[in-house]
Computed example of a mutant assay.
Amino acid sequence: MSEYQYYEFVAIDRPLTATEQNELRAVSTRGRISASSFVNDYQWGDLKADPRDWMQRYFDAHLYLANWGTRRIMLRLPASLLDPALAATYCVGDAASSFVSGEHVILDLHSEDEDGDEEWWEEEAALASIVPARAELAAGDNRLLYLAWLLCVQNQELDEDALEPPVPPGLAQLSGPLRSFAEFLRLDLDLLETAAQASASLAATKAPSAAALAKWVKRLPAAEKDEAIVRLLRGDGVHLRAELLRRYGGGATIESVDGGRTVGELLAGAETRWTARQQQTAKREAAEQARREAAAAAAREQRLDELAADPERAWQRVAELIATKKPKEYDAAVALLTDLKALGERDGQRKAFRGRIHQLCQEHARKPSLLDRLERAGLYVSTAS
């Protein structure tokens, strides 16, 4: 199997200049480049650039995947919206790390699966389904950071006695972008559900009402209102809403609760959930198997009752099928004989059936294909056996 790699970068907060696009073109002649993105895939070569460098210089989001099991997501946010210390609290390993570049914080998240047997993603839609989670993080929703920490737990990069960081609300109610994020990075569902047990419900979270916002805006100094409007008119208002909501103190989420569980407790809880799920699956499969067997037994009893009404007609049908000398008809004859055998056993006519089948085999002793089928069905034992 040939190699396959897919790279996608997106500029969100500002468009790329013509000069920057030319710089990207100098690196890749095949790349699909626009003022907002760079996309390319490779089957033999590789990108002749460092994605970390491109994230620092040009882009706000990056997705990478390879057919040997590597997946990667990088997100860049202004440090004014994502405290570097907060990012470092959650991004604590190789699977999830963070670093500061100028006025930005960059998250770098990895997933590896050397088995390579997972369901393949539709590359062109993957990053688009995840990118909105960046805006949620910018608005103060720390669930993405907690998911990043869980990646480190899942990769067993932390001591089992290490305590979890603050648990944000809504882990059991992930948004669509966060679900895509978790699925793309192969976050274990049992681990996530275990973690969500200590997460408050978003039902307790209320976005600020229009009346509350209006009252708060009226109290803002005129100079601050003027500054916000000027920023908006100058096109510098990409994160203005998130900044104002942070200042308001409402936002779309409630405060995180202090984490009190250890890594070992979370892993043990995930293992317990996995075991229980496997047991439930086994019970469902056993119940379904029993249902199928009962249905098959009922159907067979009905066939036997029909045969019992005129068994001689069934033996005549066997003879007609054999007379065709066709393999498919031989199979049908064997199936009918199997039911006749079961009928004989049910109605106490085993000896009579054995006599009839012995006579039939003698009559067709020169038909090895038929005799082989009868022997494999347990209806006949050859003298050579």
Rank of each mutant, 00 (worst) to 15 (best):
L336M: 10
E103L: 08
G170P: 09
L178Y: 01
P169F: 03
G249V: 09
G378A: 02
Q156F: 08
A87L: 03
R30K: 15
G260E: 15
R300T: 13
E312P: 00
A314W: 05
Q359W: 13
P168G: 07
R241Y: 12
C361R: 14
R25G: 11
R186D: 07
V334C: 04
E193T: 13
L360P: 04
H239S: 07
F99V: 00
P311C: 06
A203M: 09
A162T: 15
C361M: 10
Q316P: 00
A299N: 10
L370S: 05
T194Q: 15
P208M: 01
T383Q: 13
S28Y: 02
T281K: 14
A276V: 09
A332E: 15
D108S: 13
E193P: 00
D188F: 01
D41T: 12
F353C: 08
G170V: 04
M1H: 11
G348H: 06
L340P: 07
L24S: 04
T29K: 06
L16T: 10
W315V: 03
Y42C: 02
S98F: 01
Y4N: 01
T17R: 02
G93V: 08
A198G: 04
L75I: 14
P51S: 12
E164H: 10
D94K: 12
E118M: 11
L307S: 03
A204T: 13
D141P: 05
T205H: 14
A282I: 02
G69V: 05
L24D: 02
L16S: 06
C361L: 03
L151R: 15
E23P: 00
